[in-house]
């Protein structure tokens, strides 16, 4: 069995994270923003699992489970908020919600 250099796993996580960040920053549709956020969360989970594999311990996987839980709760609440927002403003454009302007 060939070995995988750990930096490659971390680079993969970094690339996915950066792509998710680009998505969060560029999209105006809030559903896309939430999806990109999932990508970012997933990327950070990947980094944990890579670390876990490096040491041959299960701690990183436990941490991934935590992230999974967090993502599930976040998506549930976030989607609820999106539905409310759509009901109130009839749009999914986040730039419409700029009432908190200073």
């Amino acid at each position: 069995m060939q070995s995988i250099p750990i930096e490659h796993g971390l680079i993969l996580a970094g690339v996915l994270f950066a792509l998710g960040l680009v998505g969060v920053l560029t999209r105006r549709n809030i559903v896309f923003v939430l999806m990109s956020l999932e990508v970012m969360l997933n990327a950070s989970g990947l980094a944990f699992v890579v670390a876990s594999a490096r040491w041959g311990h299960a701690d990183g996987q436990v941490m991934f489970l935590m992230i999974l839980t967090l993502a599930a709760a976040e998506v549930a609440v976030g989607l609820g908020l999106i539905i409310q927002m759509y009901r109130k403003f009839k749009t999914v454009d986040i730039d419409v919600l700029s009432e908190m302007k200073g």
């Binding site: 105006r28 986040i94 730039d95 700029s98 908190m100 200073g102």
Partner: peptide, 14 residues
Amino acid sequence: LARTQTGYLGWYAL
């Protein structure tokens, strides 16, 4: 500083 409070979510994330 108040001018940075645009109210745009993208701006904050950026």
